[in-house]
Design a protein around this nucleic acid. Structure first.
Length: 119
RNA sequence: CCGGCGGGCGGUUUCAUCGCGCAAAGAAAUUUGUGAGGAAAGUCCGGGCAGGAUAGAGCUCUCUGCUGUGGAAAGCACAGAUAGGUGAAAGCUUAUGUCAGGGGUAACAGAAAAUAACCGCCCAAGAAUUCCGUUCUGAAAGGAACGGGGCUGUUCUGAAAAGAUCAGAUUCUUUGGUAAGGGUGAAAAUGUGGGGCAAGAGCCCACGUUUGCAUGCAGCGAUGUAUGCGAAGUAUUCCUCCAGAGCCUGCAAGGUCAUGUAUAUCAGCAUAUAAGGGCUGCUCGUCCUUUGCUGAGGGGUAGACUGCGACAGAUAAAUGAUGAAAGGAAGGGGCAUGCGCCCCUUUUACAGAACUCGGCUUAUACGCCCGCCUUUUUU
RNA sequence: GCCCAGAUGGCGGAAUAGGUAGACGCGCUGGUCUCAAACACCAGUGCCGCGAGGCAUGCCGGUUCGAUCCCGGCUCUGGGUA
């Protein structure tokens, strides 16, 4: 129904789940992102996502916020690529050194999501 | 007018599609309302607040330092004082408790850098009297040869040569006196003129400079000004001294609930007028413990609420993304060449709340307003 | 978020109550030794400039006669804190 939404339940915030994702998750690379993902056993909860922009590459909070907003927007508009009924935990890390426009970021997100859904 | 200086503001707007945080309403779908800044930044000062034995006293330590007012306070603001720098001016900018308390330091250069005597000048004592002219050489300093005289004057002795005495001249040595002069240096002993003196010197005088105290006047005051009595051997707050302020840690502080377990074992110390400990170093005071403390080593948890009442209030952290217009600025082109109009391109800053206030500092495309100045140039 | 610390030749690392910056070690360059190399020994070694000189302690200012040092402000790097 409301597939273009991005609610609070779709954000991964539990420290426990994050550390399990980091240790057990699978890795892939889709420029400008390094993606870590894991299929969730509990399929009742929706797919949860973390987006991270390292402080090392972007000193100013304005730039970090801008890139996170663009990435979130791209995920929100393209998350229907993932198969219905499955649940994932996904971590996106923005690894490019420079600021990219919305088109490049959306391309990266789409590539990552199609790769995940194929497996 | 141009240009310059000071102060104060603003710092994009609209539409379309899809979304986010919070609050309220609703059974729900959903609807309505609301949602970043002047610096939210740096974390440089100061509070509130919280905890640390009732954080309590002294020393140590740290910070501040002209005056007045405001302020809870501040390495705060405004106004002012004195002195310096800069500018043509408006103005801008720096410093200011004390070396008439003490200690330290002053590299290099220089005679000397802080109880100054290396040269020079002068008094005294002692010793000595190889000096002049011409020529040659040499850039000069100097050197060589020849000639003249044996420092000058007075008195005495002596036949003469010569000698002695006293006074003076020159040179050397020694003991003193002198800060007027000496290529240095960031800084050289209060400046100029006169008197004075053996030579000199604030040693004395006049006019000044800097400065302490007292009194009068002006001012709330810093201070200014006048008079009187004094001082003047420089600079620097590095330490000390004087005045004032400061206990420490910081919301990842701290509190509540839930989950979870084991103070196993080893080493050292101590056992009641004793020992050990506690969030800065020392001392005191105080409090706590008495199978205690310290070290090694091991086990468990790491979720939620609160703190966080807010005309934003999150907690891997909302306030947006994409597209299109309008406006501003800069550049180019065309029409006009008096204002102006049209088109194209580029650009549209710095930057994102995290317990919260008061300041400071730093970053900032561009635009607007007010006041002030007039060196050059034009009218 | 909060609280701290640091920055010196190519590298590590000295020097501070303000007074000639680069001690010392490593490395590099040249030479001696060797058939050749290693080891060892000797000399040199920041940059610009023919030279006289100038610039150099992360960067920009200030105080001072004179700052690696003292005082502001930026930049970068590292650490602690549930």
């Amino acid at each position: 129904m409301h597939q273009f939404t991005f609610k609070k339940e779709e954000r991964l915030s539990s420290k426990k789940e994050l550390s399990s994702l980091m240790s057990e998750g699978e890795h892939l690379f889709a420029y400008p992102f390094r993606v870590t993902y894991k299929k969730c056993s509990d399929s009742l909860s929706p797919t949860a996502v973390v987006i991270s922009v390292p402080k090392r590459n972007f000193k100013r909070a304005v730039w970090r916020n801008l890139l996170k907003r663009r990435s979130r927007e791209a995920y929100r508009l393209n998350k229907s690529i993932l198969p219905e009924g499955e649940s994932y935990h996904i971590l996106f890390v923005y690894v490019a050194k420079s600021e990219l426009n919305y088109g490049s970021i959306e391309g990266g997100i789409r590539e990552a999501l199609t790769t995940i859904s194929r497996q």
